[in-house]
Amino acid sequence: MALALAVVRGLALLAAALLVVALGARRISPAPDLLLVVVVAWALTRGPLAGAAAGLAAGWLLDLAPPGATILGLTAFAYAAAGALAGRARSEGPVTAYRVGLVALMAAVVVQGAVAARALATNAQVDLLHLGLGGLLTATVAAVVVPLLVPGDRGLVPRRYG
């Protein structure tokens, strides 16, 4: 069961990473960060450690998926930090859209902040409007999708009795 769960989550991350790249290829910009949505869903279900692990895996996927990142590992760090932050907001009980949107927005700020910091370090231009719109779109999609994903994800986790 645990292996099946890991495979399902891995496939979800892979599909989200490919969708992110495919949206970019269709010049849809700004676009929601679907990978971050999956990471937030995972983090809200399982907590900060699992969120960081999911973020690390998601960031590595983005680092490696062609065309890839200039420096491997930096995106992985940003997503891991975002996943850990989102995981700290985990709570028992139903997950409300408002709460998910807020957590996803914070996670997006972490990821976009890393992007902006890297751009500033190389004297490149930073389009704050573009980054802000991307963050808002991510939060909106997360607010709609994650409340639907979390019960399914919780259902896959084996229950402990006794």
Binding site: L14, L19, A22, A25, L64, A65, P66
Partner: peptide
């Protein structure tokens, strides 16, 4: 990942 991206690409 390249073949998957090609399949999903425009």
């Amino acid at each position: 990942l390249g073949p998957l991206e090609r399949a999903l690409g425009p």
